[in-house]
Amino acid sequence: MQNLGDMNETDITEFVLIAFSGHPKIRTGLAALMSIIYLGNVVGNGLIVFVVTADPRLHNPMYFFLCNLSIIDIGLCTFSVPQSIANCLVDRPVMPFASCYIQMYAGIYLGGTECFLLAVMAYDRYVAISSPLRYMIIMNWRVCVVLAIAPWTMAFLLAIVPCLAKPAHFCGHNEVDHFACELTALMKLMCSDMAVSQLIMYFTSTFTVLFPFCLILFSYSRIIVTILKIDSSGGRKKAFSTCGSHLAVVVVFFGNAIVQYIKPQSKDNQDSDKFIFVFNAAIIPMLNPLIYTLRNQDVLGALKRLTQKKL
């Protein structure tokens, strides 16, 4: 005879997203803010992809990886923000079970891919500074393609496979205290052992967040040692400037990821989780092109040349 828990698990076909359901002004303001941020994300990251593709002077490993980062940021924002905007515009938004899971897994996958890609970009900067004369030999296009594919593969194996291996079970309660199908929000509805779910989450977070972060720290420790050996102050300043944009992105992205996924989770309603989600899924992908373009003379120069050609 089927028990009540199994019956309830099979009954769930949709999730009701109830975040700020009693606060229409907050929902409207949040929808307007996310719309502006999403537009800035698509335009900014799309512009980087266009400029790097169109200008032959930017056809090198550094900008190849930057192009990959922009594509990931567009995808990360697109899978979560438009649906979140739509959810904020209705009092009781409903998402089918399958759509909710696709949104959640897409966020996990693209976020994990970005973690590993930032580690690859740190290694690229290390090679550029430690072996400038052999840089294009070491970072040839075959190596670049392999290093670009590796983050997508590693993120799937370490972030998605463990989740698919132990699928979540829900016991009838389908109201999500969020405006998006986000992992930590859905975890609070699981009827399975919460300790086991958190253990799996910490395991995957360690390998998809902390492991790439440690690789980045190692790369930058070697970069600092190399830079300190440069005799001229101008040479040291130039070497630091080539890493500044990437380092700024790393600090913002990993700082927020650690706060969101490695901090202890509870079943209590935490409005802070919603704003952390907005920052991670919407604001950070928009900040990346701003950081790279405002601090990078090559990208600004390429953009200026392309603009003059159009005129």
Results as ranks from 00 to 15, higher is better:
Phe253Ser: 09
Val209Leu: 09
Lys188Cys: 05
Asp268Tyr: 04
Thr204Arg: 15
Asp231Asn: 11
Asp193Ile: 07
Ser205Thr: 07
Ile224Arg: 11
Phe240Met: 13
Leu186His: 05
Val249Asp: 14
Asp273Pro: 00
Lys263Thr: 14
Phe211Arg: 00
Ser272Gly: 13
Asn288Thr: 12
Pro285Ser: 15
Leu215Met: 15
Phe213Cys: 05
Met187Gln: 07
Ile283Gln: 13
Leu183Gln: 12
Val278Met: 11
Leu210Val: 05
Cys214Glu: 02
Leu199Val: 00
Ile200Trp: 08
Val209His: 04
Asp268Arg: 00
Val251Gly: 05
Ala257Tyr: 06
Ile216His: 05
Asp231His: 09
Ile276Trp: 11
Ala195Ile: 05
Ser205Asp: 10
Asn288Tyr: 15
Phe277His: 06
Lys238Ser: 03
Phe277Gln: 03
Ile291Gly: 08
Ala257Thr: 03
Ser245Leu: 06
Ser197Arg: 14
Leu290Phe: 15
Phe254Asp: 02
Phe275Lys: 05
Pro289Trp: 11
Ile291Ser: 03
Phe254Ile: 02
Gln260Cys: 03
Ile284Asp: 06
Ser219Arg: 06
Ser266Gly: 12
Thr204Ala: 07
Lys229Tyr: 04
Ser245Gln: 10
Met286Gly: 09
Gly244His: 03
Ile216Trp: 04
Ser197Val: 15
Lys263Glu: 04
Thr226Ile: 01
Lys267Gln: 09
Leu290Tyr: 13
Tyr261Gln: 10
Ile276Cys: 09
Gln265Glu: 04
Val278Gln: 02
Tyr261Met: 10
Ile284Gln: 13
Tyr261Gly: 10
Val259Glu: 08
Ile230Leu: 15
Ala257Pro: 03
Ser272Cys: 02
Ile291Thr: 11
Gly234Gln: 00
Tyr220Pro: 01
Val249Tyr: 11
Leu228Gly: 09
Gln270Thr: 06
Pro212Asp: 04
Arg222Ile: 04
Val249Lys: 10
Gln198Arg: 13
Leu287Val: 11
Val278Asp: 08
Phe207Ile: 07
Leu210Asn: 00
Phe277Pro: 01
Asn280Gly: 07
Ser197Ala: 14
Phe218Tyr: 12
Asn288Lys: 14
Ala239Met: 12
Leu189His: 12
Ile291Arg: 03
Phe277Leu: 05
Val251Trp: 11
Ala282Pro: 01
Ser192Met: 14
Gly235Ser: 06
Cys243Val: 15
Asn280Leu: 11
Pro285Thr: 14
